[in-house]
Structure formats: structure tokens, C-alpha cells
Design a protein around this nucleic acid. Structure first.
Lengths: 242, 242
DNA sequence: TTTCGCGTTTGACCTGAATCAAGGACCCGA
DNA sequence: TCGGGTCCTTGATTCAGGTCAAACGCGAAA
């Protein structure tokens, strides 16, 4: 089976060296199982802006995010986009047990994913209940996350939305760089443009820009250039979120 | 084990007579399994307005909706409510494999649910992979639904929201009265008040009322009294949703 | 260094839904 | 049939965020 990944010392079993090995759905599998899973999956690199899944397409692939950040989105009949959430390393993508892919998935940054043909994955899951339970737990967690996102979309002001995003990014960026559950970063590079932030939060670019300006004026955050954020008053940022 | 339900001829195995037997997660179980499941669950009746789950509580129970309609909601720190979705017969409620209940669940109409202690249910699921797979499929479906709801909350106008709700109710009410996949009802009783509709759609009662008036003026719907809706132009209603 | 171009910021204005404030209609019991 | 309460509708006003338009600033190419 061909593989895109060539950066690992052992191409034939990249799973064992996988950076998300202990956090993704494959976490509970033993070495034999990992080796089997390894055989049905492959690494794929995405450059920023590249799409992995298209809403409405036949659900051919499922995947795990290994590195980078993706957005999940859907579109109304008349073309308005709605971001459904963000995917970070160890998150699962795609729609097992479904005919069609329910959302678009697009890389916001350069990213690496580990993809499986859906039918292969389902057969493997069927034969390995531990994986299936892991997938269930992860899906339930995903449902919780998506419901928290609803609160953001349905009830939060522009200020609350941006504060929520900055906190989330600072936490999840820490988790994906330092491995385990590190403390959130106080200085970090925004992985996305203003326009992408606007899309993520369901706002316009102008509103996002104004909110950044306010947070800067209130000295809650500092910025060096357009992308580098320093959290000066995490307490106030958390107070805004409530 | 005590049971609230007394309306069934065979109290000791109400599952077999259950109206959602073929649609809920228990659908794939054989008679022996059903009998076992029956022993760990019990029926509970809810009157309109009564709560079944409270956000943040220890996750003690999970449940299946048998009859009626419930709303799932969450609340911001400062008291704003956000509806996360509606639950109809055969829908699953609660948070297996989780410590705390992630949302409030409140009956909008009189309702019957089939409840299980979470630990009992998890043990049973563990021992019966078919149930576990069913739960996974249902959870994935729930995730899809919750993401569609995001589109409503994040991007739809008041008019689009109400049209979406009217179509959904007319479809799901048909499904729950006639059993299988019946065609949507053209005349139906709204199961909820204007205020509840406003909460569901993330709008105010005044906005909802104004939108009802507009739909009536445009002769897209007719109304007899406050609760009875007649869909006059389903095509236009669907066009509004897009 | 200059210039170009794009991403971003800022300003002026508009709009859809929230808010505030009356009324109106229906239900139920007396 | 009459109150009286609740739910619903309607109107006037406000406001957050969207829209339109213009200027800014930073990096890359010349």
C-alpha cells in the first residue's frame, strides 16, 4: 500500500511513531492491532487551504488529524457558509456508518492527516470493539463540543465570541505542541487570517477587526504584527466569556 | 425493580409492546436481550414543563423518548438560555461514558421516557455490541442534526428559522403519530407556545409573532386559533428555507 | 528604495431583530 | 355573561453588527 509519508524512520509502521498515538482513537490498541490498522491507513499531507472532504460527497474516507488545524463547514442553498467547528490533532474526521459526508473539511494551516477508506475502517472497527468504543466516546465528546459551539453562535456577542476563540486556540495550541495537557500559551501565533476568524465565529471581518482593536485598547491582549497575540489579562478574557 | 408505567397489559415486559421498539436503539435486539434490557429500565411519565436532566449534574440516568417532545438546552453564566435541539420519540437522551450531564432536558409536552441508570446501561451496552453500535450510529446522527441546527442559529434570518421549524414539526409529528415514514402533515397542532418557539429558534417572542403574521398575510400558512397550523404552500415554505 | 498588492483597519451609514410599551384575544371559573 | 389572567399581537424605538467605502501598512518584487 502506497504512502505519502516519508518523514518517519519506519515507513511500514508509522503508527508507532505517531505523535497523536496516545490521544487519538487508536490509543487503546495493542501493537498487533496498531500494525493491522497501520496497513489500512495512510498519511496525507494538506497544504493550507486544501480541502479534504466535501459536503454531500459519497463518504469514502474517514481520517484522524495528526498535525495542523482544519475547519468543518457547511453551506446554505444560497451560498452562505457556516463553520461547524475546528479540528485539531487527534480529532476524528468524516462520517462512518453514513452514506454522505455531512460537512466540508478544509485545512486552515498546513496539516497532516491519517486517512482510511471508510469501508476498511468500519470493518476494522467491527472486529475491534475497543476501537469502536473509543470512536463512540469521541463522537459523544464531539457532540458536546458542537453543542457548546451552538451557544457561541446563538447567544454570544462579537466580543464574547472572539474571547472564546482566543482562549480555545491558546489552550489547544498548547496541547498540540507540548503533547499532554500543558498550561495554555500566553504568547502564540494565530494560525488563521482575520477573514477565517470571521468565518469561524460567524461574524464579518470588520467586526472581528474592531473587536481586536477593543481588546488591544483595553490592554487585555497585546499584538506584535497581525498574527502574534499575547494574552495580558487572561482573567479578563475569561470574564468576558463568562 | 419498581415501575411507573401501569398502562401496559404486561408490566413485566413493556419493551415488547413499546411503540418505538423498532426505531429506538433497542431495535436490533432479540427477545432475550430485550427482556434483559427491560429489567434494567423503567418507564417514567413527565408532565409538560417537567425537567428530566439538569446540566452539570452527575450523569446518573440515560433515557429514550417514548412519546412527547422535549427540549435540550444550556445556559450561559449570566442566565441566557440556548436551545440545543428538540427530542422526539425514539431519540436518545443523556451522556453515556461521561461524568456530567451536558444539557438540561425539559418536557415541552406531556411525555413518556424509558430511563436507565447510566452504569446499568453502560454495562449492558458493553456486553451487547449490537446495542453499542446502534448507539454509535444514533450519536453520529445526532451530531449531524446538531450541526444542521448550527446553520439555523448562525446564519438564518428569523423568517428562515420559523419556516425550518414548521417544516420539521410537520415532518416529525407525522413520523411519531403514524409510526413509519409517513408524509408530512399539512394540518397540525403546535405542541409548544410562542415563547417556547422563540427559545427554540433563538429569537424573541415578538419576532416570532411578527413572522407568524407575515406567513399568514402571505398565505403560506393558515391558522385556526393560536395553535393549529395549516400549511397552504409547502413549496414556498421550503423555498424560504432554501 | 520604490512600488505594488493584499490583508487589515477605520469610518459612516443601514438594517434586522431586540427591547420597551400598549393593546387585544382567548380561556376558565364564578 | 362577566371578570381576570395568560398568552399573543402590534407599534415605536434602540442597538449590535452588517454593509459600503476608503485609507493604511507590511511584505515581496522590481
Amino acid at each position: 500500500m502506497p504512502m505519502d509519508d516519508t518523514g518517519t524512520s519506519d515507513e511500514l509502521n508509522f503508527c508507532q511513531a505517531c505523535s497523536i498515538r496516545n490521544r487519538a482513537i487508536c490509543a487503546d490498541l495493542d501493537d498487533t492491532e496498531i500494525a493491522l490498522l497501520n496497513r489500512i491507513g495512510r498519511r496525507k499531507h494538506l497544504t493550507a487551504g486544501e480541502s479534504l472532504l466535501w459536503e454531500g460527497d459519497e463518504a469514502v474516507f474517514v481520517a484522524n488529524v495528526v498535525t495542523g488545524m482544519l475547519k468543518l463547514s457547511t453551506t446554505t442553498g444560497d451560498g452562505r457558509e457556516q463553520i461547524l467547528g475546528l479540528s485539531y490533532p487527534s480529532d476524528f474526521l468524516g462520517r462512518p456508518y453514513g452514506e454522505t459526508t455531512p460537512y466540508d473539511a478544509q485545512a486552515l494551516t498546513d496539516a497532516t492527516v491519517c486517512i482510511f477508506r471508510r469501508v476498511d475502517f468500519e470493518r476494522f472497527a467491527h472486529e475491534h470493539p475497543r476501537l469502536e468504543r473509543k470512536l463512540l466516546e469521541r463522537t459523544l465528546g464531539e457532540l458536546d463540543r458542537s453543542r457548546r459551539w451552538m451557544l457561541l453562535l446563538g447567544r454570544m456577542s462579537a466580543e464574547e465570541r472572539l474571547a472564546t476563540l482566543l482562549l480555545e486556540i491558546s489552550e489547544r495550541l498548547a496541547a498540540s505542541t507540548c503533547g499532554g495537557d500543558a498550561s495554555p500559551l500566553d504568547v502564540f501565533e494565530l494560525p488563521v487570517s482575520r477573514q477565517q476568524i470571521a468565518d469561524i465565529l460567524g461574524l464579518t471581518i470588520e467586526t472581528v477587526s474592531r473587536q481586536f482593536t477593543r481588546l488591544r485598547e483595553d490592554e487585555i491582549i497585546g499584538m506584535r504584527g497581525r498574527r502574534e497575540v499575547e494574552v495580558l489579562r487572561r482573567d479578563l478574557l475569561e470574564a468576558i466569556v463568562g
